[in-house]
Write a protein that binds this DNA or RNA. Structure first.
Lengths: 222, 222, 222, 222
DNA sequence: CATGAATGAGCGTTCATTCAT
DNA sequence: GATGAATGAACGCTCATTCAT
């Protein structure tokens, strides 16, 4: 089947109806839900969305093909859910970090480090983020609306706070700066993910922010 | 058919054999070759590679399905060719610009401007560059080997030259800086391409480089 | 997919995995397996392998096109299986007969009769044996290796036994004689199959062996 | 295209219209006609009819694809012509031999030898005779009507003459005996053609006829 | 006559999805 | 709930044949 022209609004991918009969049942359901998601991430990272039959995902998850459709409306929604879930977790962790960090520069560096760490911790998921999110303009636009905008807003808030505190130059557009930071890191992730090279999130984040905060220009007197 | 495991090395996508019979024939062939490429770029930009049947590309190009296969070995090669041709043109233009520009800062800004201009000039192609290049890890790795490495090398050369002339800080890694610049611009392109917003390449390039060269930090005494 | 250059060795065409869940399921599977085989034999006998779309076989079998591929790896394997199954049954029956027949002359005549009977009992299958086995040199060579060699070996064994018992001339090559008998019968089958004429296997077998055993020459004193 | 349901009556495959302008032209035409036929025999023997694109035949013959259709109505007719021409030549040579040979036994042995020689002289053609003639029941039936019947009639005539002269047993059916002889030889040819083994037509013919004339039975007193 | 680019019907095969068990 | 056999639409690609040059 082709991706339907009208995409069904994402529905924030709630895990299957919870809160009914027994907690045991719920737990079993949740567990299978997650197993399918993990299998999908692995299989799709290896072969790409369109070269990953639902049957391959089912097999990796250890369930029957039909079972997938008890948990997800379509193959498409499996991918959406995987990305949604992953992003929401990341988002929550960043939000928590921001709440307990004061200095804008430290906040930015932590965000950078967490972005790279997330990728380093789950390579298949990183591959999905680099490839399948962009599998089509429509999908990407949708994903961006849901998640990227929210993430960028957080980053822009940090930058604006820094500007108000006088640590960042006030004449810089917060939106532009956020794009620059995210883009630089994302590019790094891409080159890492596809080459397979190792790298240290901590120091890589520091290096990138070193460039972006201090600039490439040699200062007079250096 | 699935994407073949061993892809036949790209072959630099020469347009069909030229230089024989009549110039007329050659011209007609070249024209049809290009028409198919353009159609492919449009259709794939709209629907994504896997949701774009060859028949749709053929229809858009105004040729029969089978005709595609007189010019390209496979659907896969149509996409490769489109990307190869586009990149090679871009690469050549950048190279020419570098040859007639002396100042490293001006060189970087021109590169940035040209990257954004290219995208502004051909939105469907920009979409392809943002999406289909990454359609699979394999494809991306291959494309990167062919083109990105070459482009990045050019940029790193400019940065090193600037470091030697003393305009850029010497302690910065040229590779990392190149990734940051490219990534920042690419991210900008992405957000533009998928939102449909307008923007001015010239000033956008200047703004981005403003951040990357001078840094976000407020200088003492400002 | 194209016919793979290396065909995967026939695998003796086991019917789908049996012996698990319920005997009911197994039986249903076996029944469909056989139905597809029968449909294939009929359709291919009528039109030839290459003029028999899989869809035509599926239709005749009363299943969907895709269902064929749940039972067979490829169109190619449907044909192989049909021939393999048919030959193995024939082979087994001949073997059983040989075990309970003593006289070499009677053994030969029974083999001849059974060859003709088999054909008379299933005309479409006979057509396949006369045509599609030879559809390509490769296929034929493969089939011969698997089945013809085994059958010829049985016949040569009978002939050698007859020679040792002194009923057949010792100076005759058993291999050559076997070829002569089989060829004479096969030619008869061919002329029958394609003309549609009726004939009686019993008496035809007797007549052919009458010629081959006693020779065409008039004996002195006759 | 599929083989048309109504086969166009064969038309005895006359070479293109001759007897007009100049003998030179005619000769050139004949030569190209033959070149295409030879190419077809080679290519089809190697790959089978349905795996032999017209373009492959054209290439082997050194002509353009379209040129084939100036000499033959369809791909189908190229094959028919090749077989017709080959058979007619063989038929003529046998006929000439029969005219200058008196003894029925010698006639039969010469026919056998010539059948094997023909095959030994042109292996690709032999492969065609063993395989493509049988590509479908329809084709085979048609070919048989045209050629086999004629050839069998000659052989039956020889056998009947032998019976009248008292050298062959009178109670044998001439038709059956002819089938036996032809079938035995044809089987031999088949086993040779597909195995690639060498063999000597002269002695093989003698051996086969040795069996068929004298019989396999040991005579009393031997 | 000869060419070979163009056509488009047709094929083998895959796989998302359904539904009887 | 879970299964997995069955479906059939859809696809990439081939190639016999035509026809403008």
């Amino acid at each position: 089947m082709k991706r339907p022209a009208t995409s069904p609004a994402t529905e924030t991918t709630a895990a299957p109806t919870e809160g009914s009969k027994a907690g045991v049942r719920d737990h079993a359901k949740q567990e299978k839900f997650q197993r399918i998601l993990d299998a999908a991430v692995q299989v799709i990272a290896e072969n790409g969305y369109f070269n990953s039959p639902v049957s391959a995902i089912a097999e990796r998850a250890g369930v029957a093909d039909g079972t997938i459709y008890l948990y997800f409306k379509s193959k498409d929604h499996v991918l959406r859910s995987a990305l949604d879930v992953a992003f929401e977790r990341f988002h929550a962790r960043v939000k928590a970090m921001l709440a307990e960090t004061g200095d804008p520069r430290a906040q930015l560096e932590n965000m950078a480090r967490m972005q790279l760490e997330t990728v380093a911790a789950n390579r298949p998921l990183a591959i999905l983020m680099q490839t399948e999110v962009r599998q089509s303009a429509k999908f990407y636009a949708e994903f961006s609306q849901h998640h990227m905008v929210a993430y960028m807003a957080m980053m822009r808030g940090v930058i604006r706070a820094g500007q108000e505190k006088g640590v960042f130059r006030a004449e810089i557009s917060d939106a532009l700066a956020a794009h620059c930071i995210f883009g630089a890191l994302d590019e790094l992730v891409g080159s890492w993910v596809f080459s397979g090279r190792e790298f240290d999130p901590q120091s890589a984040a520091a290096s990138v922010l070193g460039i972006l905060l201090q600039g490439m220009n040699r200062k007079d007197g250096e």
